Each structure stands twice: as structure tokens, then as C-alpha cells.
Simulated assay, not measured.
Amino acid sequence: MSQLTQSKPTETFTSVEPSYGKRVVTSTAFMIAVVVVALVVLFGILSPNGIFFSGANFRNLALDSAQLILLAVGMTFLVGAGELDLSIGANVILSSVVAAKVITWLGGSPQEILAGNYANAGIAILAGFGAALVTGVLFGVVNATLVNLLRVNSFIVTLAMMSAGSGLAYIVTGGVNVSSLPREMQKNFGSADLFGIIPIPAVIAIVIGIVAWYIMTKLRFGAHTLGMGSSIRAAERAGVNVRRQRVKLFAIMGLIAGLVGFIDIARFLTTNIQGHQGDALAAIAAVVIGGTSLFGGRASVLGSMIAAIIPAILINGLVIMRVGSFYQLVVTGVILLIAVGIDQRRRAQQK
């Protein structure tokens, strides 16, 4: 008697990967881009005579956004590594002050400087640019060195350095802004357009953002950075020199702050020792809204770049609608609170 064996059909489970289009639409960067477009439309409708939609205003938005985009890119690496830098505003001020002093020192005689006629404009501007970058990097290295030596949270160290950096800027300038800088800076860089279309500072911000995205997502440096944010002990066991990596991260942030400081004086031809108070909070807010975890381990450079446009749009729109400038600090604080709320919600969903 033959025995019939009935085999059960084998069930195979295949995981269906979401399509590229679906991943893009559901990404944080895409959702932030939608918010940006919505804000532009809203202010365009509310602004008198639709002035918000004018080409000149969009150019101003690009210039205003460029500096915050750069700071947000640098902050993305720090926050992704579980660090913070509250002193970037002071770093921007100090770097711009040192650059301006170098430019006026090398530019010509005191009489020529007062008249705005620089005999050695080219050499002075290049030296000032280098001085801004070096100052920014040194400021960042000091931050990292103090964190490594004192073994305290970077929040505390950079909070103290924020006060120290601002004080140094006042000491160097005597509490007076350095003005009458070479007009060539503004004409050829600070307010110049590439091919007459997009401001050069905005182009620089985009290029640096793309490079930063590549480093974060494709290179070992980015993996080590996120590894620090996930677990410093695990990163050390994996062979990451955490102290050296921290110095590199703060140095990069300082380099970007120095660049922003030079862009600032190139655009306005004067320092602003009382400005940049909300730069750190605005950058942190953009980073967190853009998809980077406030507690480290996850970062999105692209999301940070897009989110950095939001404060610029809000402040620009409020100015056009003739809302007092002091509301800018209120807007920054509200955006930061929203960013923290978004981050907490993300963390709760991942548990």
C-alpha cells in the first residue's frame, strides 16, 4: 500500500521595500520643504502688494539664509555626535572683528581708511579672510580642548565661551564697531551674484552643504561622528579616538563660524558686535527640526539646510509686515521649542 505524503505549501515572506518616490515624500526633508513653500505662499499673500514675492526679496532671503545654513551644517555634525556649541554667535562676532582689524591695519593709512579708500585692498581682504578662518578654528579648538580636559558637558563649556568670546570682541574693538571696510568686499563677494542669478554666499552655503552631506553619509568620519552620538563607550571600543574626533568637530564648527563672520562684514562693510545673539539657538532649532536627534546618533545635513530657511522666512516676513525687530528673538525661541517637541515625539515613536 503506497503511502501518500501531502506536503504543505511553503509560505515565503518577502519584504517589500518602499519605492524611492515614497521614501522621498515621507522623508523629513521633504516635509520641511513643504512647510517652507507654505510659509512663502502665506507671507506672499499677507505682505503689502505682494512684495514678499519680489525678486529682490527672494535675493535677500538667499543672503539671510546662507549664513544660518552654514551654521546649521556645522551644528549638525556636533549635535549628531551628542555635543552642543552655544558659542557660535560669539565666534562669528570675534572672527569678524579680527578680520576687520586686519583689513584696516593692512589696507592703507588711517586717512585712507577713514575715507574708505584702500591702497592695498586686495592683500588686506585676503589677509582678513584668512584671519577670520584662523580665529574661528582656534575658537573651536579651545572649546574642544576645554571639554576634553575638564570632562564636562559641552553645553557648559560653550556657554562660558560665549561670554568670553563676546567680551574679547568688545576688548579688541573698544566697544565700537569697525566700519568703512573696502567696498570691493561687498561688490565682489558679500552682495555679488553668480552669473547675475544667485548670491555668492548662497552658492558657498549650498556647496559646503553638499560636501558635508557626502562626508556624513559616505565617509568614515560621518560614521564615527554618529557613533559618538549613539554611545561614546561603544565608539571607543570600536577604535574611535573620541577626544581627537571632538577636536575635529569643534574645529569644523569654528571654521564655518569664521567663514560666516567674514561673509557678514563683506555684506554690510561693518562689524556687528551686538548681533548674532540668537545664532546658536536658531542653528540648533534648524538642526533638530531637520531630523537630527538632539541627543545624538542620528543626523540629516539636507534636513538641516532646508530647515535653516524657516527662521529667515519668518523674520523676513515679519519685517515686511512691519512687526518690531525684537519679535525676532521671540520667533527664534518658539521655533526652538517646536524643534524640541518634534525631537521628543520622534524619540517616543522609536521606542
Rank of each mutant, 00 (worst) to 15 (best):
S2F: 13
L4G: 03
T12P: 02
G21I: 04
V24A: 07
T26A: 02
S27G: 07
A29P: 12
I32Y: 11
V34R: 06
L46P: 03
S47N: 12
N49Q: 10
N57K: 11
N57V: 08
R59M: 15
N60R: 08
N60I: 05
A66N: 12
G74R: 13
M75N: 06
V79M: 08
E83S: 11
D85K: 05
I88V: 15
V92F: 05
K101L: 13
K101T: 14
W105F: 10
S109K: 10
Y118K: 06
I123S: 09
L150A: 10
R151D: 03
S154N: 10
I156H: 11
V157Y: 01
S166D: 09
I171G: 09
T173A: 06
V178G: 01
I200H: 02
V203K: 01
V203M: 04
I204M: 12
A205N: 12
A212H: 04
K218W: 07
K218M: 07
L219R: 09
F221D: 12
F221E: 12
G222V: 02
R237V: 04
A238D: 04
V242I: 11
R243I: 00
R246S: 08
V247W: 05
L255S: 07
F262E: 02
I263V: 15
D279S: 10
A286E: 11
A286Q: 03
V301Y: 11
S304N: 06
A307C: 07
I313R: 04
L314F: 13
V319Q: 11
G324I: 05
S325G: 05
F326D: 06
V330H: 04
A339N: 11
Q344C: 02
R345A: 13
R347F: 14
R347L: 13
A348R: 09
Q350G: 06
